[in-house]
Nucleic acid binder design. Structure first.
Length: 335
DNA sequence: TTGTGTTTTATTGCCTCC
DNA sequence: GGAGGCAATAAAACACAA
């Protein structure tokens, strides 16, 4: 082996010995640069694919009238470095592709592991070491980066997919738990509603007793006011139908004035205005009608107002004052 | 042996950076 | 404007089943 070969091989050996976990790096590229070596052709399962680089070198030596020794290889790279036209011509035969040898690829792989970018100096050195053109080395690195990127994308995709599946499982689990909790909430609200109904009824019956007692003993002011109303009603009735006039006057009065508890159960009537003002009263007498109208405005119905701040309960909900809360609470739990 | 799919090497065109 | 990188692609080389 000549000085040039020793120099290059020495460099290759040092380079490979720097690789991590390289077990057989003693003379990794010796076969690469020994043209005609039987080791070269047997290093791969496919004879055609093994050590084409070396084969190229042999051809190159033949082109240059080499003497068959393995010494001109690295000298030829010096020629290439100086722009040897024939060498360049050989490596640019149109329509021909020469696969790199297993050893060459291994060497390039190790180099790629160290650094996947290729500086010009390193490229030239690698080309020298492997008996390739710098452009071939550049192309190999370029293609290798493309392959690496593809694999990286696959890894990223798998990681994302695993992450997505995990999140999906979590979501479904939480969704089921949420459904369960909704059902529990509805059940609890039903119970609460029932209790509130019972409580209000009790309270109302006590209030009604008090009201009845109050009505039995009207104050002087109330009596005077009633007289005033009667006079006005009489005057209006001269002009209009008595019943309609009476209704108008009643509507104009403050609800607080009518605290008759005769129909206190109206609390549980629908709060919907259409229902309130258009009841089916065909079978009611005028007095009963009056009493009903009065009973529509008891002060204790106002607690329902605090629920009316909730937004847009379902239009179809036939709420009795309290269910509006339930509906809105339901919406707040909905997605 | 052959057809077919895959891998590897190489080219082309475009883009960015200096 | 030249060098170098990248994506897309061509085409040779390879692997493998039938």
């Amino acid at each position: 082996m000549n000085m040039g070969g020793s120099r290059v091989l020495g460099g290759v050996t040092v380079l490979l010995q720097n690789q991590k976990g390289l077990s057989s790096a003693s003379q990794p590229l010796d076969p690469l640069f020994l043209s005609g070596s039987s080791k070269n052709s047997s290093s791969s399962s496919s004879s055609s694919s093994s050590f084409l680089g070396s084969r190229s070198m042999m051809s190159f030596q033949n082109v240059h009238g080499g003497n068959g020794s393995n010494t001109s290889l690295f000298q030829s790279f010096d020629h290439d470095e100086n722009g040897d036209d024939e060498f360049d011509e050989y490596f640019h035969q149109p329509g021909k592709k020469r696969r790199l040898s297993v050893d060459q690829v291994q060497f390039l792989e190790k180099s790629f592991e160290l650094e996947n970018k290729l500086e010009p100096e390193r490229k030239i050195q690698l080309a020298k070491d492997l008996g390739l053109q710098p452009r071939q080395v550049a192309i190999w690195f370029q293609n290798r980066r493309a392959r690496w990127k593809t694999k990286q994308l696959e890894k990223d995709y798998e990681a994302l997919l695993a992450n997505y599946n995990s999140l999906k499982a979590d979501y479904e689990s939480l969704f089921k738990e949420n459904d369960k909790m909704k059902v529990e909430i509805l059940a609890l609200k039903d119970k609460l509603l029932l209790r509130e109904k019972e409580g209000v009824n009790l309270e109302l019956s006590e209030t009604n007793k008090l009201l009845e007692q109050t009505q039995k003993m009207p104050s002087e002011e109330e009596l005077a006011l009633k007289d005033e109303v009667s006079k006005v009603s009489a005057m209006v009735c001269k002009q209009e139908d008595i019943s309609s006039a009476k209704s108008d006057i009643l509507d104009a009065d403050s609800p607080s004035r009518y605290t008759d508890g005769a129909h206190s159960s109206v609390l549980m009537e629908p709060a919907d205005s259409s229902y309130v003002f258009e009841p089916d009263q065909s079978d009611l007498s005028q007095d009963e009608e009056d009493n009903l109208n009065k009973s529509l405005f008891p002060s204790y119905i106002f607690p329902k107002l605090e629920y009316e701040d909730y937004s847009d309960p379902p239009a179809s909900s036939c709420n009795f004052g309290f269910p509006a809360v339930e509906d809105n609470a339901f919406w707040s739990w909905s997605y």
